[in-house]
């Protein structure tokens, strides 16, 4: 079976700094993969390369049969099917919650407004914010904003969701509400690639945890194996520091 995401020999330079040093990775359909690692390890860069927000210096990425890294590929078509959630939420401040969710289905998929709003309302129920559709982003807490951001990405009916440190900018009491939504999503069978250090989420929902350091994958294993019995010293040291 073709994996949902296949990354081969991904190399990325920022000026002269090598952020990715030949990363190979696959994500199967329905798999939930968590990437952990110290800051500067290249985990966000890797994630952002999957929908070409970062251009790889060399190497290739496929989503199903489409080659993301091929300049001839219509990247917009791929991005329509790849949902992304950012650390800083990036909701559109001039649009209401419902319009944040419907703007892409209406403008990109050419969906009818009524249809898009019906989907948007359903998603707001799913993330527990049915009563906030008329609110504006600055009237919401961080946790609420991030849940809207998840609904916004889901409105495009993506086949994979990318999460770039979705809880790092949140106050502790708001982290759970976001992780609960993500856990539900994982249980529904969504393919997910998540950059995060949330161990609880990893144990509850992740099929595999990937540890990266210095632009390389050091080791990967199911969460209980990696957390309890890391093979590499670097992994041990990192886990000791964050646990």
């Amino acid at each position: 079976m073709t994996p949902r995401v296949r990354i081969e020999k991904a190399v990325k330079f920022f000026n002269k700094v090598e952020a990715l040093r030949g990363v190979d990775m696959t994500v199967q359909t329905g798999e939930v993969v968590l990437i952990i690692g110290p800051s500067g390890s290249g985990k966000s860069t890797l994630l952002r390369s999957v929908n070409r927000l970062e251009h790889l210096s060399s190497g290739d990425i496929w989503i199903d049969d489409e080659k993301v890294t091929d300049p001839k590929t219509d990247i917009r078509k791929i991005r329509e099917e790849v949902g992304m959630v950012f650390q800083s939420f990036n909701l559109f401040p001039h649009l209401s919650v419902l319009n944040n969710i419907t703007i892409a289905p209406i403008n990109v998929k050419r969906m009818k407004r009524g249809e898009a709003e019906a989907i948007g309302r359903k998603l707001l129920v799913k993330v527990g914010l049915a009563d906030k559709e008329r609110a504006f982003p600055d009237q919401l807490s961080g946790g609420q904003q991030q849940r809207v951001a998840i609904a916004r990405a889901l409105a495009m009916d993506p086949k994979i969701m990318l999460f770039d440190e979705p809880t790092s900018a949140l106050d502790p009491e708001m982290i759970k509400e976001v992780l609960d939504v993500m856990t539900d999503l994982a249980k529904e069978g969504m393919t997910m690639l998540v950059v995060s250090h949330e161990m609880g989420f990893a144990r509850a929902a992740a099929d595999r945890v990937v540890f990266m350091d210095m632009g390389e994958i050091i080791e990967q294993a199911p969460p209980e194996v990696l957390f309890e019995h890391p093979k590499e010293d670097r992994t041990k040291r990192f886990l000791d520091n964050i646990l």
Partner: peptide, 22 residues
């Protein structure tokens, strides 16, 4: 903020669409 353009692009909008509507 740059994140606004990125969020719009990640949703599949073109640069032109993102500039005009976001």
């Amino acid at each position: 903020p740059k994140g606004q353009m990125e969020a719009a692009l990640a949703l599949g909008m073109s640069r032109t669409q993102a500039i005009w509507s976001i």
